[in-house]
Write a protein that binds this DNA or RNA. Structure first.
Lengths: 219, 219
DNA sequence: CGCGCTTTTGATCGTCTTCAACTTAGGTGG
DNA sequence: CCACCTAAGTTGAAGACGATCAAAAGCGCG
């Protein structure tokens, strides 16, 4: 994670502690516009970053999993968070005070590069979001979403936990009804099926990719 | 720009030069997937970053103007560019070899923070893109686009240079015909009008914002 | 078991896409 | 300087896709 390249003794005399925490699904890590002093490194589970519209509607702008760091905007850009961060599953994370990061950075300048890489990851994810989750027909977008979930949120078996239809809708820029219909269609065609009592699902990644290709060439 | 906080003498003995260049509209700065050794700091004019789809279609993922730096992915992330960068207008820029940046960074560790801020800017722009240019009805999106152009690309009079209908379409995730119709409608309602022989236009920012609000509450 | 919430499904409606024809603008060469 | 050519933009008509509204079904939980 963020500090994996630092020697253990660097942590001996920190002014503020780095906490490990476990959150259940639906926990709000922080809110858009609120002053904050902590960033979060995700050890496991999925977190969504959302923006609230004037009318109260929410738009998901990023899904982040293991290894990602959220709240980095606090470092270079003022004291308020730019998104609301909500856990989508049970999430294990480190809560890192911003001052702690500054402390460590003073003795380990190379940490700045690590942070930059974490930021670059956000850029890459955002670009991918625009290109794949907000482009093309609804069917393709949901297919892309399933592939994304498999990429960043798969368990040891490669299985995924589906997000709510509302979240799917807000991710893909469609309505929850459309999302529901498409998921139902995918299940009927066996592109997606449940493998446990909870909402653990398995996807046919290759067939989903073929579907995406078909949809785009017909346009 | 990127080096504004560095002392002038830092540039005396650089191994490689920093060039100032002027490009006309339609110039390709670099291509997605190509190995590159230079980043670009924009002094004036607009640049688009695009991603190419499997079918040859292009998707604009960012518009950048004065002060933005493009190609930063080379620093932390391998040697190839992740987008194709194309100038939309006459653009003045600095071409900065990546090794030069590393050189300078060695003697000026604070430069790393500056780079981080430039990256954070990309994240902010990408989030804004998702929230405003890829959400809601086509009319709102085009209105948002005009506001964006005014924000990052306005001249000293606050006037903007319109982008092509194709670019509008690729930015907002709609078709060029729809973009054309909406621009025509805006002109009819005097939300937008030409102020010179070239395509310099003036917008009624406040009325556009009202339009956006109206559209979203009726959903 | 009943309550509330999410999901599903259906029917209708509106927006945007698509395809095609036409117009305009810009650039080149006669 | 104008005729021509090509690319960009405009406009219309048709149809598709997704949104919307409404109702029913499924599900978790007290």
């Amino acid at each position: 994670m963020l500090f994996s390249r630092l020697p253990p003794e660097s942590f001996d005399q920190l002014l503020q502690p780095i906490d490990n925490e476990r959150h259940h699904a639906g926990s709000v890590l922080y809110k858009e516009g609120c002053v904050g002093k902590e960033i979060f490194s995700i050890r496991s589970g999925l977190v969504k970053l959302i923006r609230l519209g004037l009318d109260g509607s929410e738009r998901v702008v990023r899904l982040l999993g293991k290894g990602a760091v959220v709240g980095l905007e606090l470092l270079d850009q003022g004291e308020v968070y730019k998104h609301t961060a909500v856990t989508l599953q049970t999430v294990d994370l480190c809560r890192i005070p911003k001052v702690t990061l500054f402390d460590l950075e003073r003795h380990h300048p190379e940490l700045c590069v690590t942070v930059r890489q974490k930021l670059q990851y956000h850029v890459d994810r955002a670009d991918h979001w625009i290109e794949h989750l907000n482009t093309g027909k609804a069917r393709s977008r949901i297919a892309e979403l399933l592939l994304l979930l498999a990429e960043i949120g798969a368990d040891s078996n490669g299985d995924i936990e589906l997000v709510s239809r509302d979240d799917m809708a807000s991710i893909a820029g469609i309505t929850k009804e459309t999302a529901s219909r498409i998921i139902a269609e995918f299940k009927r065609h066996r592109l997606l099926y449940r493998v446990a009592a909870n909402n653990t699902h398995r996807i046919q990644a290759e067939m989903l990719r073929e579907l995406i290709q078909r949809e785009s060439q017909s346009d």
